[in-house]
Design a protein around this nucleic acid. Structure first.
Lengths: 126, 126
DNA sequence: ATAACTGTATCATATCAAATGGTACACTTA
DNA sequence: TAAGTGTACCATTTGATATGATACAGTTAT
């Protein structure tokens, strides 16, 4: 379900957050679906429950999942769409960075646009 | 010349690297141009020379700048283009993350593509 | 009730990257 | 010679990440 990379400089909890979001986006996880308990996922990944909990708490803050004490954690009924202006600016900045780096690698405008389209399509497909 | 954000989770030296690259890309800095000495820039930004040096060394490793002992640091004559397959995969992954987040915010394919084009154009203009 | 499962909270600890502050060395220019 | 370059250390601090252990509170099934 989750595939961790320990070589990555990306924190474990962030990797969990992103991959859960991808699963939701691809439809592998539907609203109402249960996701593994913090203990189960921690055991499966060989990490501490606290780290999984940290990821789940951020996902809940973003209203991607809902947690019910004693019952478990579930995909939210309605995936919220939040404009969140401040975050949008951050996203644009990061996007600019990636585009700049690709340009440094010799990618021109069209190749970058094509790459973005490719990545988008891959993300939708199951 | 460089605008630091201390609130950002992005390290200072990385911010310097990115903004220098942007200046080169926008043409504000031309091949052969001198950039501030590590001490001057450190003083201007209120940081340690070692941090600026770290940024400059990475920029030199990427052949964006050239340093000459006792003389100073300059924009490289030819900005190298390096395919660097491993890095490309990292870039694609990060791009995927940004695209996913934008989609979570309600951006559809066309809006994302338009945003990418916008950012690209902004990057070229002075 | 009881057992087994949920998520949450806390604490001390360890690790690592980032940045600081200071010092020193080697080179170039005026 | 003096002032300015980049570089190289080193000890220290800070903050984020993750661990390991324990404990609490709620739910479910028996």
């Amino acid at each position: 379900m989750i595939d961790l990379s320990y070589k990555s400089n990306q924190p474990i909890y962030e990797q969990i957050i992103e991959q859960m979001k991808l699963h939701v986006m691809k439809g592998h996880l539907q609203p109402g679906d249960a996701i593994p308990s913090v203990r189960k996922l921690a055991l499966e990944l060989g990490i501490t429950p606290g780290t999984v909990s940290k990821a789940y708490q951020e996902l809940e803050r973003q209203q991607i999942i809902e947690t019910i004490r004693g019952k478990g954690t579930f995909i939210a009924d309605k995936i919220q769409i939040k404009p969140d202006e401040g975050k949008l600016e951050e996203r644009k900045k990061r996007l600019q960075t990636e585009i700049m780096e690709l340009r440094m690698m010799g990618y021109d405008k069209n190749r970058i646009v094509e790459l973005v389209k490719e990545i988008y399509e891959e993300m939708i497909e199951c």
